[in-house]
Computed example of a mutant assay.
Amino acid sequence: MSLIEASTKEFGNITVFLHSLGSFCYRIEWYSKMTGASISLARIKKGKYIVIRKWAAIRGLTDVSTEFDRANQAFIHLLNNVDVVKGKDDLIVAAKQHCVNLFAKSEGLKPISKPSLPKPRLQGAIGKQVVVKSRLGNSQIAQGMLLQLIGNQAEIQVNPEHIEAGQLRQKFYTKQVFIC
């Protein structure tokens, strides 16, 4: 794996890297100096992509990965799970735009001039302690660390006292969590 120097760019406390993994494979990495965490989209081979979140060592969390067979799904997952902690909105949008440009170039797509880059509602809570409540909001279902957003699900590393059926990591269909 080699870093492609001309593609490395800093946006405040965010750095975006492009790594070459061979002739047709690449890795786009979003690193947050504020959290010490990174998230990467890697094209392993044609039709196989993986998005990996690496937490800061001090957090003591194991890495989270999700596999995809379509580039667009993997890329949207990457953008929905990047760290936005204490980042200015204009710098976050510029960093996401840079990722869009790197992705389009790496996939051999036409340049994407005006992408829609909404900030998912739960994105600022990634890596924080959260509470998941029932749809009516009257009872607590689980409490733990929000690890990633997968479509309309939130994956949470549940606190030991809230574990059901021995699963440390659980996915919940929700668009709302409450920060502790």
Rank of each mutant, 00 (worst) to 15 (best):
K46N: 05
W55E: 02
A95D: 15
C99S: 10
N152G: 10
T8E: 11
T66D: 15
V177G: 02
N81T: 00
S139A: 08
N159D: 10
W55P: 00
A165E: 14
D90W: 12
A142D: 15
Q148M: 15
D89G: 10
A74S: 06
R27A: 11
R59N: 07
E5C: 07
A165L: 09
L21C: 07
E164F: 12
K45N: 13
Q73H: 10
E164G: 14
V130T: 09
I141M: 12
I52E: 01
S32W: 08
Q157K: 13
V16W: 00
V84Y: 09
L3P: 03
D90R: 12
L122S: 06
P118I: 03
K128R: 13
D89L: 05
C99Y: 03
L122F: 09
I28Y: 07
M1Q: 12
G47P: 11
L61Y: 09
D90T: 08
A57R: 14
P111R: 02
K119V: 13
I44G: 09
F75S: 15
C180T: 09
D83V: 00
G12K: 00
W55N: 02
I112V: 09
M1H: 15
A125C: 07
Q148V: 10
G137F: 01
V84W: 05
T8G: 03
F17A: 10
L122T: 04
A142L: 06
G47I: 06
Q143K: 14
E161I: 02
A95P: 15
R53W: 00
D69L: 03
S65N: 05
F11V: 01
D83C: 02
I150W: 07
V132I: 14
I163H: 07
P160N: 01
T66N: 13
I150H: 13
Q123A: 10
N138A: 03
A104P: 00
Q167W: 09
F178K: 10
K86P: 04
I150P: 14
F24E: 12
I50V: 15
N81A: 01
F172C: 04
L3Y: 06
F68M: 02
